[in-house]
Design a protein around this nucleic acid. Sequence first.
DNA 1: ACACAATTTGCAAACGCTTACAATGACTAA
DNA 2: TTAGTCATTGTAAGCGTTTGCAAATTGTGT
Lengths: 338, 338
Amino acid sequence: MQKKQTATIYDVASRVGVSLATVSRVVNGNSNVRESTKRKVLDAIEELGYHPNAVARGLASKKTTTIGVVMPDVTDMYYSELARGIDDVANMYHYDVLLTNTDEDPVRETMAVNNLASKQVDGIIFMGNELDREVLNTIAAVDAPVVLAGSLDEEGILPSVNIDYVAAVKEATELLIRNKHDRVALVTGPMVHAINKHHRLVGYQAGLEAANIAFDDSLLFATHQDYSAGLQVAEKIFAAQATAAVVYDDEVALGIMNYMRDHGKSVPEDFEIITSNDTKFAIVTRPELSSIGQPKYDIGAVAMRMLTKLMNNEVVDDMQVQLPHTFEKRGTTINPQP
Amino acid sequence: MQKKQTATIYDVASRVGVSLATVSRVVNGNSNVRESTKRKVLDAIEELGYHPNAVARGLASKKTTTIGVVMPDVTDMYYSELARGIDDVANMYHYDVLLTNTDEDPVRETMAVNNLASKQVDGIIFMGNELDREVLNTIAAVDAPVVLAGSLDEEGILPSVNIDYVAAVKEATELLIRNKHDRVALVTGPMVHAINKHHRLVGYQAGLEAANIAFDDSLLFATHQDYSAGLQVAEKIFAAQATAAVVYDDEVALGIMNYMRDHGKSVPEDFEIITSNDTKFAIVTRPELSSIGQPKYDIGAVAMRMLTKLMNNEVVDDMQVQLPHTFEKRGTTINPQP
DNA sequence: ACACAATTTGCAAACGCTTACAATGACTAA
DNA sequence: TTAGTCATTGTAAGCGTTTGCAAATTGTGT
């Protein structure tokens, strides 16, 4: 076919009559090269259609200008919006992104990180609800900076970017309580995940406590992170006679809402819902979902920006960043009582 | 920090007392190495925690086991589901995926392809509605196979995987007509895109023609690909007195549905909708969206599989694959009249 | 015109691995 | 025993860049 043997740096060097080093210098915008030679080299590059071979570059310089992104699933709106933020600032700094889906499987997460390491990525952004000990060890063993985006490690030592989940869930819980609910359900993922146990649950309990409502663990629900899981858990929530719920995932929230409506409850009159991710899902339904507002794109973007600093050995003052969250009042909550 | 100098192939070679070549052979599962030496090498690898450096490997072998994926936006459900299919089979064949978002900007698409080329990817999967001439040239100039997924080039020469858009749209149109609509709108993207002009529109007109309904271009609408665009175009559709619509994107369809309902039309009684992508968006609303069913995951998977063959110089009998589509009858269409 | 300091260049050694090709050794058949 | 085969292993030449260091060139002040 079109098998074109791409020109090498050597070709342009001999074309111009200079050494490899000189060409390399102008290609890298490097220091001092006489203006006239630079121009000649540039011309030759143009004529030969020379494109530096990034692999060779990587070998020689030990920098690949590539970062790895490890995520549960591109198909999950929450994560894909983070990924978009990551990708945009990655491009801004001229990094490429190596993407891996793990479905939150620790084995695959470990493999992914190791794989990225052998590909010599300059840095890694990791997303996922749980940070398995082995995954943590693997990350620690990697010779490249890693930052967590929308994710937390139990000890809170890894660089990370999140919102204040405790505060956000507390506020949501309080809002619902203020609306006269005394049976507010909390729907999250498995309690083995730090983010659920140490953040969402804590926030929920804090909200309860502030209102002097006793914690009742029959109002605690753990689900998968998808629509049908929402449909399923809704039945239990219904049975538990909860009249409102704080939900950790939009698809799950939608499942719950639809179930309730299919079973004669109207939302928000009979059942109020506050979801947490504020993805596109939240605004395409009627009623629209009231949600904790997360700056998802920014979480990804800030995480990536942080990574660039780390890769550059710049000082990063705050290694555990918390971005501000909001509350998006929409149709699944009634107006707060004054 | 933990700056660990990773062991090289040389280290394990000298540890075992064999040559680089031998180690390389066992690492690559290569041909003939005596069982006993293989074992010794494997042990040494284990002890030293040796991981082959993929960059060096790439330089030496001219194969990076990395492919590039160029797509409009990870955040778009349709494309992210394709991406998932791609990623899964890529992993199956031990390829990594370099992901790039282009927002369908030809300039960025061109840059992306060139960039991937200089990173020496072994192949590229390209997604996007339009294939700008320059992008096409760039693709042709790349020394690596490229396959289109869920996308078409005007000439239909590039390897690609799609469904039969003409047939799918025709069927949808016919179904609506059969339901007594004589003013069926077609909502697509810009007509400058081949997929709209040469496929969706053609299918739509074929459907009309089969029912002897004259084509009326005031029933043709071009929009952006997002929810608010749907809300906006809905107003015009309403004004045009259409009573049904075939829509190319789920978010747009949702916008249209919500607008109609907000303006006193009930769906599907007063206005029927058939969308085209059958993403998660289609099933989380009430009513659920009737949709052309596309095997999105499979489109990605098949495209990737095809790419592996191309990268391997295997023969590919069918370079323009059309996967079967279905019709998912849900809540935005009434039961077809017998 | 001369010594000395910049400023530009070139040399050549990595970077870590793959892979022809050559070499060695062991084994087989005659 | 001897040549001929295989199976196994080693040698060394790349792959296309970057980069520390040395060499060459140019400029400056006197």
